[in-house]
């Protein structure tokens, strides 16, 4: 008996099958690549192959920016925002966690918890500096695989100061430092420190960061960033084993809490991967907003609509 959690993010789509005793039957991290629909279907297919045949799915939860899409497709019992999902997941593994640092593909957030309750949170608002996408981009510009990024940063001996306020400034600063002849490892390390500085000044501004600090999200794989956090905070930083699928774990746990209350699940089963899903869009000309309405079809039936600024298209 287990619960399925799906986290559809901008960069990755993650699926987790979580057992009753917090054991993970299967965890998947696949790239969304701008096609959430395909990512969800292929993810479901893959994870179905990974779990034991007789395993019963008692509930399903979705989170991430594509949570509504995923929710109507699979028949989710709970559709929750990423902040709650991440907080729930972190406290499963570190029950007394007080600070959660989460850095994903397009967003970064800080969640402050006291007595296992979220008391404060912040997300990057107008700037994506310091998120996974930027690191990806810089790694490919420097010609190093993203998986090596952290190791290279750690081998630095004299860190170089890189501007962290804005990714555009950071990039020109890095190019300048390269032209000056600084070592690659020092520049990479400088970038890690700049991102952490920016994160703490921007997202973490005014927040009281107390241990235990849990660091999760795709960027937690980067040992350079972890080291920079530990240096800047002067605190140990815990990275959970399944750091890159914590959102999905949280969604699965929330599905468990929900179905414990209701006693039944709306999960449509893995068979849905055999169905045809497609989306269409059209411009509503009801008012000058010209909202672009997206419709999702399961076979020939509309199962969801998005994009309207009024309720005109809410009823399906």
């Amino acid at each position: 008996m287990a619960y399925l959690g799906i986290d559809v993010g901008s960069v990755s789509t993650n699926l987790v099958v979580l057992g009753k005793n917090r054991e993970i039957y299967a965890a998947l991290y696949i790239r969304t690549q701008g096609k959430p629909l395909e990512a969800i279907l292929s993810g479901l297919n893959e994870i179905y192959a990974l779990i034991p045949d007789e395993l019963e799915i008692l509930g399903v939860g979705t989170t991430g920016s594509g949570r509504y899409l995923a929710g109507v497709m699979v028949g989710a019992d709970v559709i929750k925002n990423e902040i709650t999902a991440h907080a729930v997941a972190a406290s499963l593994y570190v029950p007394d966690v007080q600070t959660i640092v989460e850095i994903g593909g397009q967003d970064s957030k800080i969640i402050i918890m006291r007595n296992a309750v979220v008391t404060d949170f912040a997300m990057n608002s107008v700037c994506a500096a310091g998120t996974g996408s930027f690191l990806d981009q810089q790694a490919s510009r420097l010609g190093i695989p993203i998986s090596e990024f952290g190791k290279i940063a750690l081998s630095s001996t004299t860190p170089v100061r890189v501007a962290g306020r804005c990714t555009v400034f950071a990039e020109s600063d890095m190019i300048h430092k390269q032209q000056m002849g600084h070592k690659l490892s020092d520049i990479v390390n400088g970038l890690c420190e700049a991102l952490v500085r920016n994160y703490l000044n921007n997202v973490g501004k005014g927040k009281e960061i107390l241990p235990p600090v849990v660091f999760q999200g795709g960027v937690a794989a980067n040992a350079g960033i972890k080291a920079a956090f530990e240096k800047e905070l002067d605190l140990p930083v815990i990275i959970p084993e399944y750091y890159n699928v914590m959102g999905a774990i949280g969604a699965a746990q929330l599905a468990r809490e929900e179905t414990d209350k209701t006693g039944l699940t709306g999960f449509k089963g893995f068979k849905i991967t055999g169905l045809q899903y497609r989306t269409t869009s059209f411009d509503c000309s009801g008012c000058p907003n010209n909202c672009e309405i997206v419709e999702i079809y399961e076979e020939k039936k509309v199962i969801g609509r998005w994009g309207a600024r009024c309720q005109k298209w809410d009823i399906i």
């Binding site: 920016s65 929750k80 925002n81 990423e82 902040i83 709650t84 007080q98 402050i112 006291r114 007595n115 309750v117 979220v118 008391t119 404060d120 949170f121 997300m123 009281e208 107390l210």
Partner: peptide
């Protein structure tokens, strides 16, 4: 919407958790 949902969750849980106090952290 994500931030609003999370905020509403937060105040909901804060409300049900009587013994909880923001000042504790300080």
């Amino acid at each position: 919407v994500t931030r609003l949902e999370a905020f509403v969750d937060l105040v909901n849980r804060k409300r049900t958790n009587d013994n909880y106090d923001l000042k504790l952290g300080m």
